[in-house]
Nucleic acid binder design. Structure first.
Length: 233
DNA sequence: GCGACAG
DNA sequence: ATCTTGTCGC
């Protein structure tokens, strides 16, 4: 019985860590981050999101795959399990990635890039959930968050697609992106195997009529659907 | 020491 | 993150 029947990724590291060890691990993993242009054109883009009921340790994860040109969902997977790692700002990946990974492994198609709900390198140690997910899966990733975690930014212009850099000292970590007029911006940053310009270009491409780019928006809708179905039954 | 703090 | 209807503003 070879361990190849499900497209699992060789474990990069243990997930059963305490917060102190998790911070130490982040400091080691950050050395492996590669911010570079994509190797080729994007045909498929993934979206990843987590959902759970308040005060519940039962997590629900969904991965969606969209055709990059039409932004139509062509595949989706779902997984649910209990989680014990607490929510600690800066350590979100240790709470959410294990469940996301189980959903990701069920995909029949490998997206060329995955958009994760949360930050990429726009993180105190440059190890946001999108970056961590990219390192673990070996896939290009970007983060799209609804709130800033670290760094400074000035308000982007008023039109859809307008962006302003997120700065940490002299480093640019990502962009505040006006995804929809009259709405607060979202925060986009590269995760892994993608560069700043690529992350911004992809996020812009995925904008439609809503605040959230399609991959993240679809993953959010889908995972909530699943959670409610599992809850009120 | 104080305030901030993704989901 | 999630619970929720209407309502104010462009």
């Amino acid at each position: 019985m070879s361990p190849k029947d499900s497209a699992s990724t060789p474990a990069l590291h243990d997930w059963n860590l305490d917060p102190q060890a998790a911070v130490q691990l982040q400091k080691e993993l950050r050395e492996r981050i590669r911010l570079e242009p994509l190797p080729g054109p994007v045909k498929l883009i993934g979206g990843a999101d987590i959902s759970f009921n308040l005060y519940s340790d039962i997590f629900h994860a969904a991965i969606v795959v969209l055709d990059y040109e039409s932004l139509e969902v062509v595949e989706s997977t779902y997984f649910t399990q209990t989680v014990d790692f607490p929510y600690i700002p800066g350590l979100l990946s240790f709470r959410e990635i294990p469940t996301l990974l189980r959903a990701y492994e069920q995909l029949q198609q490998r997206p060329d890039v995955v958009m994760v709900d949360g930050h990429g390198i726009a993180h105190p140690r440059r190890m946001g959930i999108a970056t961590h997910f990219g390192l673990v899966t070996g896939t290009p990733t970007l983060g799209c968050a609804k709130k800033i975690l670290t760094g400074k930014f000035t308000a982007p212009g008023p039109d859809r697609g307008d962006a302003s850099p997120i700065q940490a000292g002299s480093d640019t970590l990502g962009y505040a992106l006006r995804s929809k007029p009259k709405v607060k911006p979202v925060f986009v940053s590269p995760g892994h195997l993608l560069d700043l310009a690529g992350a911004l270009e992809i996020a812009r491409h995925c904008l439609r009529k809503h605040k959230l780019p399609e991959p993240t928006r679809m993953a959010h809708l889908l995972v909530n659907e699943h959670r409610r179905r599992a809850h009120d039954q």
